[in-house]
Write a protein that binds this DNA or RNA. Structure first.
Lengths: 233, 233
DNA sequence: GACAATAATATGTAGCTACATATTAATGTA
DNA sequence: TACATTAATATGTAGCTACATATTATTGTC
């Protein structure tokens, strides 16, 4: 009974997950308290806690203080996307990276950008349009807005040499990042910049970041036709 | 000096992150050992460990036993996608969900599917083509292959009533999930099923799952024009 | 009965110890 | 020198205690 072998939190997690999946506990059910699980498994509460944290993070259960742990009624697939700096993404594929600043200007934030940041009123921003190249061919076109109040130093960065993407990633952490992915047909402007056919299906990534409540940057990145985004475990 | 206030792992994490970002420690640098950080912060090693785990998971640092902790040379943006069951996604938007089985047949896995699973040879699979509807309008069309060796029970499920999506999520856990996202122009077949214009830009999600080494399902989900995928914190 | 104050409860966190594990560095031997 | 053995080291995990925090249930008062 009280075998003194040590149980890893991974095995405890898998046991609990197994129980949920073979319907010992169904969707919406309340699971036993951590302590009870610990007693039944013959391990410490901290080990069960570690396992439960993992299950909660992966979306299988939901935990609330005092409320206990419940099996989520609506299981979700959680996938982690790794979005590297574009230069590294290109180089990792064995291609030569190129970068081209197209336009740069100070503007009040557009309504769309204000919406992304949920700002009630316009703020002065630096708008940077730039093209990333792989082997001299257009790879990703980005239209980026940088909040000058949050990142005043950006004005003294030479964006013809270093991409705003890279500078921000290396110099500005963010505490929140919203991502939106969709497809849209290429406009004539797209096709000019990306050297693609108008009407082609283009993959678009919109990314908005904050540090605390302060907006940092919001960008719309349009990839060349054929671009794919992967998950990686 | 030795103030006995307790430090939360979150504040420790933020302090370390701050140091990395203001270049106290630069990309590629080796960070002090956990114990040293603990001593300098005046907290326990376990607290530093907790903080470090979080930084490692978010992609800012990399840890190796004995090797120590290093600031990643190539910071990545890690975003977690929540992919709910399609029915719930539709209902959450306040729309009425509909489901329609289009075709279903047992086939040996196609080369493309074998590639997704990295299978050396074909296996018998159930291919299910189905349409998810929102307010009676096409929402997502999915072309799914289910491995019959791993999921033999699927043959006894009435897929005209319950979607394979839902049944699998509720009954088959997976240990690995590969995701691929891209845009492609709609074919005449797409436009027929999705009632869209041929050549329209369509958002495609390919998802392949395994339990252990055993393949479960691989599917290609094509969304209606205008579909967007979000992250959620 | 309505509502505020209080107690009970389950998870969350911090700190400690001890040991496991992976990897590098040092050492010994042919 | 080459190679296997051993030691050293930093992170990873398990177990314990104590306390914090959020939320629910209970109780008391009007």
């Amino acid at each position: 009974m009280t075998d003194k072998q040590r149980h890893s939190w991974v095995s405890i997690r898998d046991s609990i997950r197994e129980m949920i999946l073979n319907s010992t506990y169904g969707p919406g059910d309340k699971l036993p308290r951590d302590e009870e699980f610990a007693a039944s498994f013959g391990c410490a509460r901290s080990t069960v806690h570690r396992a439960m944290r993992d299950l909660a993070q992966s979306g299988l259960v939901e935990r609330r203080r005092k409320g206990g742990t419940m099996v989520r009624r609506d299981p979700v697939t959680r996938a982690t996307l790794n979005i590297p700096i574009t230069r590294l993404e290109v180089e990792q594929k064995g291609s030569t990276y190129g970068y081209q600043l197209i336009r740069q200007s100070v503007q009040p934030s557009s309504p769309a950008i204000m919406a992304n940041f949920a700002l009630p009123e316009a703020r002065p921003m630096l708008r940077v349009e730039a093209l990333h190249l792989a082997d001299s061919r257009p790879y990703i076109f980005e239209d980026r807005w940088i909040c000058l109040e949050t990142v005043p130093e950006i004005t003294s960065v030479d964006l013809t040499r270093e991409s705003a993407n890279e500078w921000l990633v290396r110099n500005r952490p963010y505490s929140r990042c919203d991502l939106r992915l969709y497809a849209r047909p290429g406009t004539p402007i797209d096709s000019e910049v990306l050297q693609s056919t108008p009407g082609d299906a283009l993959f678009v990534m919109e990314r908005t970041t904050w540090i605390g409540e302060a907006p940092i940057t919001s960008l719309c990145a349009v990839a060349h036709p054929g671009y794919q985004l992967f998950t990686q475990g």
